[in-house]
């Protein structure tokens, strides 16, 4: 094992370890205030064009923040708070569209497009690979051209 590959092993191990430490201690809200804040970021202020309850200065947002705070203090779970807000304000309070009905599309379509694009790329790359440049003469010409370009660009 060369010195560089040993160094690489150390780098990769250190990176994995760091991510592990970071993830172990990750964003789980500890205090009630933090939990209120985290929850407030997940709901929309019904009157302010898609701003979250946490961001908005509108009075309705302040009311919802207060409601979340009191529910958190009373020990309600996240789902209970969500249901409570849904009953009080309707679906306008959801920042994240539900994965049902028409709005399921908004989650499915990106996946379909990404998978499709990657698939198309891979298939193009594979198909092209089977009949690439035909003769050695072609190859030489291309290499000469590339050399010329690199030379002139320098």
């Amino acid at each position: 094992m060369t010195r560089r590959s040993m160094a690489w092993v150390i780098i990769v191990l250190l990176a994995i370890a760091s991510l592990g430490v970071a993830a172990f201690d990750d964003g789980v809200p500890r205090t009630e205030a933090e939990r209120t804040q985290a929850l407030a970021q997940r709901f929309a202020c019904p009157e302010c064009d898609g701003q979250s309850v946490a961001d908005s200065n509108a009075s309705v947002a302040a009311n919802i923040r207060e409601l979340i705070r009191s529910e958190v203090a009373a020990g309600a779970t996240d789902d209970e708070i969500r249901d409570r807000l849904l009953r009080a304000y309707g679906t306008d309070v959801l920042l994240n569209p539900p994965a049902t009905g028409v709005s399921l599309l908004i989650w499915v379509l990106p996946a379909v497009v990404v998978v499709g694009a990657v698939g198309a790329l891979v298939s193009i790359a594979l198909r092209r690979r089977t009949h690439t440049l035909s003769t050695d003469d072609d190859r030489r010409l291309v290499d000469a051209a590339l050399r010329t370009r690199e030379w002139t660009e320098r």
Binding site: Q41, R42, A44, G50, Q51, S52, T91, D92, L94, L95, N96, P97, G101, V102, S103, I106
Partner: peptide, 16 residues
């Protein structure tokens, strides 16, 4: 589009 299609009112915000 959703509202035009069947009147569903959606907010798509930061979490999405």
């Amino acid at each position: 589009l959703a509202e035009a299609y069947d009147g569903t009112r959606l907010t798509i915000g930061r979490p999405y």
